[in-house]
Amino acid sequence: MSILINKDTRLIVQGITGREGIFHTSRMMEYGTQVVAGVTPGKGGEWVLEGKVPVFDTVHHAIEITGANTSVIFVPARFAHDAVLEAVDAGLTLIVCITEGIPIRDMMKVRQYLNQQGSRLIGPNSPGMLSPGECKVGIIPGHITQPGNIGVVSRSGTLTYEVLYALKLQAIGVSTCVGIGGDPIYGTSFIDVLGMFEVDAHTDKIVLIGEIGGTEEEQAAEYISDHITKPVIAFIAGRTAPPGKRMGHAGAIVEGGAGLASDKIAALESAGVSVVEYPENIADFLK
């Protein structure tokens, strides 16, 4: 069992005919995800991946014909916010944005609009989600994890893979892994996902992977101490990152004394979370 995505997910891929879009669509289908349609403006009527997936010009049309309930977005950064808004207006309640490098002004408008419409956005700059054995939406490699009872939520991409793989080597499986993305403005927070794991009958323990920048981990710590009864294990990347330097992710920067790893670790520990020193140590706390 899982949160957000499962065997019943009917997925459309926005930007399906691009290089990344087509590559990852085929990987998602190999994993067993029901990809029911793609959307690329101007390419409606075509079929891709040996005629398995129809392409539509608009999200609205794709939903009307295929009954899709979730979208994943691979369109380039300059068009991505428009793609998210199109998906919201077409009535989708779950939208996953993989695209990296969206201007912050665009994302603030999207975020404000989402609040008004009640759709859920995961990302942007997210590796997507994976419910092992059921469904994969995004780019997380399928073979590095297996079904199990651990919920994983992360701001990172490859660091999440590192953790999933280390768990698999210890025969520990995952209910759902959610990559919330490394940008400063995002659709879904740690808190949102923690709340879902808390009520998911098939998640017994939760792994939280954070990094420097912002106050998301501190807010998560406060929420954990008030609302989460399941054990939480955390890793925070960037203990050695100097202030004022952006560490790759747009969101990973220590500014004006806020966003330090040490503050995040202290907040999480005081909320009863076990914070590990190496990502590979997480498995030891889950046994």
């Binding site: 990172s156 490394g182 560490m247």
Partner: peptide
Amino acid sequence: NGAGLAMASMDVINS
């Protein structure tokens, strides 16, 4: 490869 993993790698070197 990856910002989060790069930061984690730096941290592990440090420890």
